[in-house]
């Protein structure tokens, strides 16, 4: 599903070139649940953003579902992204002005799905996450765990094949964190969604089938 070859990412600060990622070669197959670990500044988030097409490397190639991402036209890439990738953030990043329902609905709007169909999909999702009763609340009225639940629901609404999570439990207490991780495992096993998560916690990393350790922009081992 994902093939990264010779990925380099650097930034120039004055005369010094600081490498964020160095020679990353990585293959991830469909249905995998991968955890990425490493100390602060090791390039975990950068890697995730590159996989999620939010960022581009300075060098290297990336194939996603057989498509050479960097040779695609902007429009096609955006289409590929919209249909296949969902994102979950540490700080939830819900849109404050929208209700729970509308937050979850928004990705569908950007895919031009019809109103009646949207309603059905969102209702389904609310049901599945047990948040039907909260659908008209605004993010500020929810607890952190509930907000992240909405964040996950939003990431999954368009039925992506790949779910990317950047420290999804970082702002949650351990019990809330566990719930989210259980949800991830269930997703991976029941729906076959590929999941890549960045985490600091050994315990959460164990939920994945494979752990990738990053240090100073390189994959260890």
């Amino acid at each position: 599903m994902i093939q990264l070859e010779k990925i380099f990412k650097w930034v120039n600060a004055g005369n010094n070139r600081t490498f964020l990622l160095k020679d990353i070669n990585l293959t991830i197959n469909e249905g995998e649940f991968v955890s990425v670990m490493g100390p602060s500044g090791s390039g975990k988030s950068t890697l995730l953003n590159i996989i999620g097409m939010l960022d581009e490397p300075s060098e290297g190639s990336y194939h996603f579902l057989g498509n050479d991402v960097y040779k695609m036209k902007e429009k096609q890439r955006s289409q590929l992204y919209k249909e296949n990738i969902g994102f979950v953030f540490q700080a939830y990043h819900l849109i404050d002005e929208l209700t729970v329902y509308e937050n979850i609905e928004t990705p569908l709007l950007y895919q031009n799905i019809k109103s009646s169909e949207r309603q059905a999909i969102v209702a389904d999702m609310l049901d599945r996450f047990n948040i039907v009763g909260k659908k008209d609340l605004f993010p500020s009225q929810l607890s952190g765990g509930q907000q992240q639940l909405v964040g996950v629901a939003r990431a999954l609404i368009a039925k992506p094949k790949l779910l990317l999570a950047d420290e999804p439990t970082g702002n949650l207490n351990s019990k809330q964190g566990e719930e989210i991780m259980e949800l991830f495992r269930q997703l991976n096993q029941e729906s076959g969604t590929t999941i890549i998560q960045v985490t600091h916690s050994e315990k959460n990393a164990e939920y994945g089938q494979r752990i990738i350790h990053l240090l100073d922009g390189r994959i260890e081992k």
């Binding site: 999620g52 939010l54 955006s78 992204y81 919209k82 994102f87 990043h93 819900l94 849109i95 404050d96 002005e97 928004t106 990705p107 950007y110 895919q111 939003r154 368009a158």
Partner: peptide, 10 residues
């Protein structure tokens, strides 16, 4: 942030 988030959502 909102604009960024909307882009993330496609």
């Amino acid at each position: 942030r909102e604009i960024g988030m909307r882009k993330v959502m496609g």
